[in-house]
């Protein structure tokens, strides 16, 4: 496991980038002094369940990945924070969301995630390695982001059974699944069955991390993700 640099600090740049006709807001985290070893897009939770750039996991993981040498781009989905787009109308959509944990036009969030990946590549230029990290609902969007074989995917508390994870059947990239015990958003058996069905190189880590929320575990979470990414990137022929 890569040890976090206690002395390294991260730089945070506020950015804006296009997703179709809309401009989204994002933050790029990167190490202040050390070389950027790779870059990831962190795709966040559902906008109606704490899904913005200020979520503790999004902020915490971005911060620590940056300190560990990984440039990290997180963003607000359309309609969230200062990102352009119609905000989800909670009172209108609540009945649907209450019943299904879904709202209208969720597919557009995948467009935003794809746009973020394009932006990351623009920003980091010739960085040798790329990866994708999802948290909660964001995990369901990763297979819809075009990336090559060498791009590892880290899934933090995927919402299997609640959102559509069928596209993972066609994924051949290395996958890390971090599944908290007692996660309200999925159940253990469902995660196990889905994980077993994956044909990609894969790794499953289970543990007790404050249900679905990782409050107080953000640093350890980032270390786990970083170790996975660095290990995959150090494999022969891993350059993107």
């Amino acid at each position: 496991m890569t040890q976090p640099s206690r002395t390294e600090r991260e730089v945070i740049e506020e950015i804006r980038f296009p997703s179709g006709q809309l401009m989204l807001e994002g933050r790029l985290y990167y190490p202040e002094r050390n070389t950027i070893r790779g870059g990831v897009v962190l795709v966040g939770p559902h906008p109606m369940l704490g899904g913005d750039m200020n979520n503790n996991v999004v902020r915490g993981v971005s911060t620590w990945l940056a300190r560990l040498g990984i440039g990290t781009l997180c963003f607000n989905y359309r309609g969230v924070g200062a990102s352009e787009g119609k905000p989800p109308t909670i009172t209108t959509n609540l009945a649907e969301f209450w019943a299904t944990s879904r709202i209208e036009d969720e597919s557009a969030y995948a467009d935003d995630a794809r746009a973020a990946k394009v932006e990351l590549q623009e920003l980091l230029g010739d960085v040798p390695h790329l990866g994708l990290v999802g948290y909660s609902f964001g995990c369901s969007l990763l297979p819809h982001i075009p990336c090559d074989q060498a791009c590892p995917l880290a899934l933090i508390a995927p919402t299997v059974g609640r959102h559509d994870y069928a596209a993972y059947q066609n994924v051949s990239n290395s996958v890390l699944v971090i599944a908290p015990e007692g996660d309200f958003a999925t159940d253990s058996a469902q995660i196990g069955a889905w994980f077993d069905s994956l044909s990609a190189p894969k790794q499953l880590i289970r543990g007790e991390w404050d249900d679905h929320f990782f409050r107080g575990w953000e640093e350890e979470l980032a270390e786990t993700v970083s170790s996975f990414l660095h290990a995959r990137w150090e494999e022969p022929h891993a350059a993107n």
Binding site: M48, L49, G50, N54, N55, N56, I90, T91, L94, F97, W98, S101, F184, A185, D211, H212, F213, R215, G216
Partner: peptide, 28 residues
């Protein structure tokens, strides 16, 4: 309320998911 929850200032007992959804609604 959601921010307070993510900052560990609020604990939710019972149905956590409903608690978060209601927190969103309450915030509005």
């Amino acid at each position: 309320p959601q921010t307070a929850f993510f900052n560990h200032q609020i604990e939710i007992a019972g149905n956590v998911e409903d608690g978060l959804k209601l927190a969103l609604l309450f915030g509005e």
